[in-house]
Design a protein around this nucleic acid. Structure first.
Lengths: 346, 346
DNA sequence: TTGTATGCGTTATCAT
DNA sequence: ATGATAACGCATACAA
């Protein structure tokens, strides 16, 4: 299976140059649409390219230009699939626009092998930029090392947004605030809250938004109604059971992401409680899961695709510019409330 | 940001050769662990590599070897996220084992741009093999063209499994048969069925399995209870509403994938019908969605990760062998029934 | 067992 | 505006 030109004709830039009666460099100029080429010459070259069915060899381009035109996405395999695919969609879309390929790199947090293979990829010049998802998005020694070495980095929703490289986040506080106000507006006063992973600053921002809304409404927060999850369905199920056992039972539960909200709904189902008649349940993210649940989940929409697209564009700009990202290394996208059917009056 | 050796020391094979006092070729031999190298020489080389922090440049390797060490996954963005991420997981796992990177290529079916960018990738020597998901996995002119050109191809669950290249499928017929027998065993006689896309042979295999089980049990299939969906949640919701309106109402609904089953559950919810007390609902795939639904979905498990891993391994073998895939170009994985809580006695 | 010379298909430099 | 020539960093054939 060593047929390099299985579909391409195998013509090289040299062939084109000869056919067009110009030098290789001139062909190269035309390909890369550089300046200083007569229209007439350009036409000759284009004709030759068409006649020969010439396609530039990407490996040669990469070697000569010292760039890979590859962006690598680093994430953990357990990431919620809906969110992940949206991230991928946004990245690939922008990457394609700029002639970049996207390489996928699911890693295991503790497994040295995957970290090592990433390092290998990076060190071998296999990628021009890294897009990091939690938990890899944070301020690790490895990332610092890469950044100082000049690698272009972008973190999406890092555990701590205070990084020297490109960071994309959403308005966690505002989103949680808005959702809580909505619940309050419905008449709820005893609202349970399930926290995300404690290592993520975004988890705390969401909790703060929740608490601030309560405070503004003069509602006393009940410590018993705030429990810790970790963004997984399982933790939502477990903590949902806990919250539903509290007496008197909360009238609403705000799970700080959709996966956990699905868990809460299941916990309610187990207890034969109707959502939203007996208990209101809301989430955060507006993942693909949200509208597939019954009832469809009221949640906070996170513009994931757009966010990913924006970061990618910024990252590519960083890569193309010789200048270090000066100025806007922070991207923040605003969330919005999506009212579906999982929350009602108490 | 043009620092090629941001982390690598920028040492080349030449530097290593000089430091070790050997030729470039010898270093190359050591790197690629070829035969005929004295242990002593190898040690010298390894020392030099370590001292210099040398890492082979991947672009140079690719250019010289005329191979990209890249596998490209072609799929449509709307693919169910759970299934897709599992496919990716399986592919990346095996790819990494063999030193291959995985490039992602979400395409729009009708959009010429994405097809073109794929063709470009392929023609420029940017990939050694293609893994095709529906609807791209089928017998298109483009794929034929690639195959005849010598490109290594693998299709996962193609619409028609009768392809000259590597094909991976699951036991659709057997799975649907088993599920129907389970439903029958529970006592159901009026069972609704929601068909997948009519263009997919897998859809018909599942329907055949369903019908064969009914026939074997001596149950007369009711035409009214068989409706057409397209594997999307929305179609499941729509056809679920249709089936639930049939008089007398079916006691169970077999949606031929989990997404559609989620739609049926929502349709039941809308009508205030309890699952499984009032109506049993089952799916097919055992996607990540299945256990997040309430009640957790009884379904047919499809070993997606293993399937993807197997195809990938076979594909890489095809790429590495100079021989065309002789013999096993077909991989079939067996499904299994997963009993959860969405089906009960009628 | 090791080395030499050459090729891979571009881009980059510096002339002209 | 265009071209000759040298990188780019490794692999490969063939010698030794």
């Amino acid at each position: 299976m060593n047929l390099p030109q299985f579909c391409s004709t195998g013509a090289t830039i040299q062939d084109v140059a000869e056919k067009a009666g110009v030098s290789k460099k001139t062909v190269s100029r035309v390909i890369n649409s550089e300046d200083y080429v007569t229209e007439k010459t350009a036409r000759k070259v284009h004709d030759a390219i068409a006649a020969l069915g010439y396609v530039p060899n990407v490996s040669a381009q990469r070697l000569a230009s010292k760039r890979s035109y590859v962006l690598t996405l680093v994430y953990q395999a357990e990431e919620p699939p809906g969110w992940l695919t949206h991230v991928i969609q946004g990245i690939v879309q922008k990457a394609a626009e700029h002639g970049f390929e996207v390489v996928i790199h699911p890693s295991e947090v503790d497994e040295a092998a995957s970290q090592q293979s990433l390092q290998a990829l990076v060190m071998r010049g296999g990628t021009d930029g890294l897009i990091l998802l939690p938990p890899f998005a944070s301020d690790t020694e490895f990332n610092q090392h890469l950044f100082e070495g000049g690698m272009a980095l972008a973190s999406i929703e890092p555990s701590n947004p205070d990084l020297p490289w490109l960071v994309a986040t959403i308005t966690n506080h505002q989103g949680a605030l808005e959702m809580t106000e909505y619940l309050l507006g419905l008449g709820h006063r005893r609202i349970g809250f399930i926290l995300g992973p404690e290592a993520y600053s975004g988890s705390w921002e969401r909790l703060d938004g929740f608490n601030d809304a309560l405070k503004a409404a003069g509602v006393v927060a009940n410590k018993e109604l705030i429990v810790s999850g970790d963004y997984t369905f399982e933790s939502g199920l477990a903590q949902g059971r806990v919250l539903l056992a509290v007496k008197p039972r909360p009238t609403a539960i705000f799970a700080s992401n959709d996966e956990m909200a699905a868990g809460v709904i299941q916990a309610a189902y187990e207890k034969n409680l109707r959502v939203p008649d007996d208990i209101s349940v809301v989430g955060f993210d507006d993942s693909t899961l949200a509208c597939r649940l019954s009832p469809p989940l009221t949640t906070i929409r996170q513009p994931t695709i757009e966010l990913a697209a924006k970061v990618t564009e910024a990252l590519i700009r960083t890569i193309n510019d010789d200048t270090q990202a000066d100025g806007d290394t922070r991207i923040e996208m605003t969330t919005s409330l999506v009212v579906r059917a999982s929350a009602g009056k108490p």
